[in-house]
Amino acid sequence: MTSTLLATPTNQQSGQGIENSTTNPPGTRANTLDFYARVGCASASADLTVRSGQTFVAQQYTAYPFRLSRTFRLDPGDNRRAYLYLMNSAPGIFGGDRLTLGLTAEANTRLYLTDQAATKVHKMPVTDATVARAQLAWQITVGAGASLEFVPEPLMLYADAQLYQSTTITLHPSSRLFLSEIIVPGRLARAEYYQFREYQNRLQVLAPDGTLLFGDAMRLTGQSNAFKDSFFFAKYPLISNIFIVLPNIDLDTISHELATNPQLNSPHLLTGASPLPNCNGLLIKVMGERVDHIQTYISQVLACVRTISNEPDLPHIPK
């Protein structure tokens, strides 16, 4: 099912945020969130800037500190995929933040979503319970035949930070997902290492009927981590995960590429891959010493996925 673009998007003030809606009445689902975007696939357009088959932002609601970039078309020779940057005008995440974000990728859309810079999780004073920790929650829905590539910049856990993060993704059986994350346990260049208090990250990937396909829950303690100085964490301090779900693609092809492609065998990284439960998907775990090494690896894996899926080559993503 595709969306039909009826009118040129307009910005509207809604509550304390800005709503930009083209097809649905303003306020749908968005009012309880700090950020919400819905992308649709155009079938016919009154707006000459959007062509049939293109993914476009059908609705967006943004409240402080979030804004969404304009839509970029970066695939060479193929402008169906939308490239969007989620922008955060705050200096980072602070104690007391309760940020909820939503994203709906409607049927047949193709979206690459990223952000502009690393998310800094700042010091949170333990003396005041109201600001002793922060929460960040994502609710994402990916419709039939849609493809979501969500490649955020690293999350940096500063000294005395405490962040509870959750991501719930509802995935149609025919949709594709590429999700990556990089966790940096402090400002390593300043020798700040595991000085945060705690980081929890819960991921749930659900079928449309609510059945859990797979889930992950990480609890990483900082100052009280008895293992932070053992080689299990100290040798490769950066932790990264890549979740890939690709219906109708032979995962062995990707696994073979991961094992044999020289570009994907960096001497600076420790990597491993495993099929995920209850879906045609792959989990890749990565540990390293430098963010740029891991980011390069993630880009190369995504490029590999694009090639195997007969999708346009991954372009340079300006940052």
Partner: peptide, 9 residues
């Protein structure tokens, strides 16, 4: 929850 990234790899 679990958190043993190097052992997982």
């Amino acid at each position: 929850w679990s958190c043993t990234p190097l052992i997982d790899i």
